[in-house]
């Protein structure tokens, strides 16, 4: 089944100020969208609106023609990996993964989760002893936990070296081939392949 995410005339309001407006785009299964723009142009806000964290916006977001304008809706279809790594610093990577089982309410196959981004070698290390790149890889590994249709990645390439960007690229390709779609924000030159580019500077009210 093909999935479709439509953003219609979206306007984001933070602290009673409009951040961006008139944003309209459409994403279909197997597509990757890159969101770029200056700092403060609303890249993160856009991803957080789609993920359901920010409800203060105008316009509409349709997923498979169903409206998502409320917190808590359709969330099983979306997976968001933000700039915060959501890892407990004083626990080992394995313990963190074990806790994800309760948060995502599913059993986790450790090989399946450690394979794609090659995090097996530091499973038993404390998160506090990992480098920023390693933390990012652990954090991104949560994408493989369950079958979400839409991946929303906020600056996933920060701290990743060229090899790991390729690993993430193949993970996203596999997800898209299985009918998923990916929207990610980035400001680096070393980007993944994408089907559409959205430059937030065109919509931002800076």
């Amino acid at each position: 089944m093909t999935n479709k995410l439509e953003i219609n005339d979206l306007e984001c309001i933070r602290n009673e100020k409009s951040i961006f407006q008139n944003l309209t785009f459409k994403v279909e299964s197997s597509q990757t969208i890159l969101i770029t723009g200056k700092n403060g142009s609303g890249k993160t806000s856009l991803l957080r609106i789609i993920a359901g964290f920010i409800v203060n916006y105008k316009g509409e977001i349709l997923f498979n023609s169903k409206k998502i304008n409320d917190f808590n809706k359709l969330i099983a279809d979306f997976k968001f990996v933000g700039q915060k790594n959501s890892l407990k610093e004083n626990l080992t990577v394995q313990q963190n993964i074990e806790l994800w089982q309760y948060l995502y309410q599913t059993t986790i196959d450790i090989d399946q989760i450690t394979g794609p981004l090659n995090i097996k070698s530091f499973l038993d290390k404390d998160v506090s002893s990992l480098s920023d790149g390693q933390r990012k890889r652990v954090s991104l590994s949560r994408l493989t936990i369950s079958q979400s249709k839409v991946w929303l990645l906020d600056e996933p390439l920060v701290y990743l070296d060229a090899d790991k960007v390729k690993l993430l690229g193949s993970l996203i390709d596999k997800h898209n081939k299985d009918g998923g779609m990916t929207i990610y924000s980035s400001n680096t030159k070393n980007n993944l392949d994408y089907n559409k580019l959205i430059n937030m500077d065109n919509y931002a009210l800076l």
Binding site: F53, N72, S86, K88, L103
Partner: peptide, 17 residues
């Protein structure tokens, strides 16, 4: 607070619950 700071609170809050 600790879940808020490391971003886990968001994951908890957007679970359909």
């Amino acid at each position: 607070n600790s879940d808020y700071e490391d971003g886990n609170l968001e994951i908890i809050l957007i679970s359909q619950f």
